[in-house]
Design a protein around this nucleic acid. Sequence first.
DNA 1: GAAGATTGACTGATCAATCTTG
DNA 2: CAAGATTGATCAGTCAATCTTC
Lengths: 159, 159
Amino acid sequence: MAAEHSRERLRLWLRLLAATNEMERVLRRRIRAEFGTTLPRFDVLAALDRAPEGLSMSELSRQLMVTNGNTTSLVAALTEDALVARTVSPHDRRSFSVELTDSGRDSFERMADLHARWVSELLAGVDEADVDQLSRGLHEVRLAIQANAESGALAEGVR
Amino acid sequence: MAAEHSRERLRLWLRLLAATNEMERVLRRRIRAEFGTTLPRFDVLAALDRAPEGLSMSELSRQLMVTNGNTTSLVAALTEDALVARTVSPHDRRSFSVELTDSGRDSFERMADLHARWVSELLAGVDEADVDQLSRGLHEVRLAIQANAESGALAEGVR
DNA sequence: GAAGATTGACTGATCAATCTTG
DNA sequence: CAAGATTGATCAGTCAATCTTC
């Protein structure tokens, strides 16, 4: 089994967490200071910008990796501000399509460049080869977690 | 500058975020199901377990990578449950020392093993060499973010 | 005035329960 | 009954303002 290398894996998890927290903290602060909005809201706009044809609430939740309930309130707030709009699906009256308004798209585009620049600058100093290696490794890590969480659920008695 | 490789760095950030979210989601669910508590509370107990002599609120906040206000309410809740105790510092009446109670230590030790096993199992399949490489790389990433956030703050006009 | 800690207002996130439509 | 979405309760987290002590 894998238990004999428990220590190294635990350390990996702590470092993963530390790096992510550090990045999120900096980005959150800058987005607030510079644009007067929040990271989650920016993330909603980014997801919708990638989907010009619109997304359902569930699909949007999946892409943002959050629950439906969370998405509901985020989208409600953004609708208030007229940055996104919801239109009822023509084929399923349970479902909405959420998309950017013109104002939302403008607002997002104003922010996106600077955001990308921040990320890039914050990661400057990590050398090029490491960036790619880490990307690949982290993708592998995510897939492992997903795979192991399912099989582990039964073994551990987690429902 | 670093801007020419913005795309790869952005991708790294997204994967970092995805992997961390996935892991946290699984751990949070299991801790709730198995122990009836939450990940942040577990984290407090873990930090205090590593510091038998106790920690001040500020030092605890720093280690948990959260704000003081957050720590205040977490520690209040754990004090309610008699898992931690606060004693006034003998030398500075502004400051507390927070430490585990016997009950808190028992409770933590019951959980710690299984938690470590979960982490290890969830990361099983990531091969040994990659684990170490990722650990080192992520440490480097964190340091880069911290270093660049400071220097960037002035350049970007973030206060 | 600065540092340790708390408070209050607010945003974000989960989860379980519910409503509506399929 | 399943699936899409919302609601309400609860817990986390930030931030700015405040209180107390140094």
